[in-house]
Structure formats: C-alpha cells, structure tokens
Computed example of a mutant assay.
Amino acid sequence: MTPPVVQEETTGCGIAAVANILGKTYSEMKAIANGLGIYADDTALWSDTQYVRTLLNNAGVTTSDDEIPFTLWDSLPDTALLAIKHHQENGKNFWHWVVFKRIDGKAMVLDSAAYLDSNIRTDFFEMEPKWFIEVTSIL
C-alpha cells in the first residue's frame, strides 16, 4: 500500500480522500478537481457529497447512490468514504472526509489531516462516523 495522501490545504479533505482511493497525489487530484470546477476552498466540498462523487465518477469509479447511516465498523464495505467530525454551522451540515479500507481483512482509516502523527488510523473508538458512501468499483 502506498502512503496515505495528506491534504495540502485546510479544506482539501475531499480532494485528498479521492486521491487516496484513486492512488493519485494531492497535486494530481487537485488539478483534476480544478479542471472540473471543484476547488478546496469551496465549503460545499465538505458539505455536499456531489463533489466527491463527481471526482470518483470522472475516474470511472462507482459509488452508492445514497449516504448510508453508519452503524458498525464491521458492517462497512471494503472501501468507503466516511463522514466524521460531523457538525452544523448556521443550520448547514459539515464534515471531514476520510477513507475506510479493509485490506486482507485488516481495517484502517486513511485520514488526510496534516496535524495527525499517523494518517493511517485504527483508533476507531475515537472517530464517530455519521454516514458513509460505499465505493463499489475501483479501476
């Protein structure tokens, strides 16, 4: 497994999460996103699911049509975009994007936050996912 992508902008978690799924660097994914009119400083990137879906679909990756409420870590698919740090500002929902991966039965979360000591997380009890988007096919 390649090292997780770390977001290079404070609000670039959606771009970094998609880069982690697609195996691209942050700068490669940012260039693709910008070409599609998606920018890290747009708060909709972490308050609307359509942007990450667009980036994944553009790469030929299929996702679940809806956000699926999180229940248990064991019930997650092998790859999923998770919404953690869910909160509201002025009645609008916001979250931090991370990627859940299960490789050879080992579960982990790729968290692009630059302040973390390790961007591969297994401290599941610390994260409180609200919901997830299943990634159903990766090229």
Rank of each mutant, 00 (worst) to 15 (best):
K106H: 09
E134V: 08
I133T: 04
W46F: 15
A107Q: 09
E128W: 01
V135K: 08
L116N: 04
W95N: 04
I138E: 13
D66E: 15
G35E: 12
E8V: 06
L56V: 08
G35K: 06
G35M: 02
N34K: 13
H86K: 07
Q88H: 12
S118E: 06
L76N: 04
D78T: 14
P3L: 04
T71S: 15
A59K: 07
P129Y: 05
W73Q: 09
Y51T: 03
I120D: 09
M29L: 06
P77Q: 10
T122R: 11
R102H: 03
V99F: 10
V61T: 14
V5T: 13
R53T: 05
V109C: 01
W95D: 05
G35C: 01
V135A: 00
K85D: 15
Q88T: 13
V61G: 07
R121K: 14
G12S: 07
L36T: 06
P77S: 10
H87Y: 15
L56R: 03
I103N: 15
D65R: 09
E126S: 10
R121Q: 15
L56S: 00
L72M: 14
D123I: 09
S64P: 11
D42E: 14
L81Y: 09
K130I: 03
L36P: 01
E67I: 02
P129I: 04
T79S: 12
D65Y: 06
P77H: 15
F124H: 01
K92W: 02
I15E: 09
V5H: 09
I32G: 07
M29V: 10
V109N: 04
A19S: 04
F125Y: 15
H87I: 11
G14A: 08
K106W: 00
H96A: 03
A107L: 00
F100N: 03
N34P: 08
H87C: 09
N90A: 12
R121Y: 05
H86S: 11
S112E: 08
D41L: 12
G91S: 10
L45V: 15
I68W: 12
V5P: 09
V61A: 11
E128F: 04
I32L: 13
T63Y: 13
G60Y: 11
D48E: 14
I138A: 08
C13P: 11
L36E: 04
D117S: 13
P129N: 00
L110H: 03
M1A: 14
K106Y: 04
W131K: 07
V6G: 01
A114G: 06
I138W: 02
N93E: 10
N58I: 05
E89N: 07
A33L: 10
A33H: 08
E89Q: 14
A17I: 10
P4M: 01
H96R: 00
K106C: 03
P77D: 14
I68P: 08
Y115T: 13
P69F: 12
L81D: 13
G91V: 03
L81R: 02
T136K: 15
K92S: 11
W131N: 11
S47F: 04
G105I: 04
D42I: 13
I84M: 10
I84F: 06
L22M: 14
N93F: 09
V6H: 00
F125M: 13
E9A: 13
E126R: 13
F132T: 01
G60D: 05
R121I: 06
L82W: 02
N93K: 05
A107D: 08
C13V: 03
Y51C: 06
I21R: 01
D104L: 02
P4K: 01
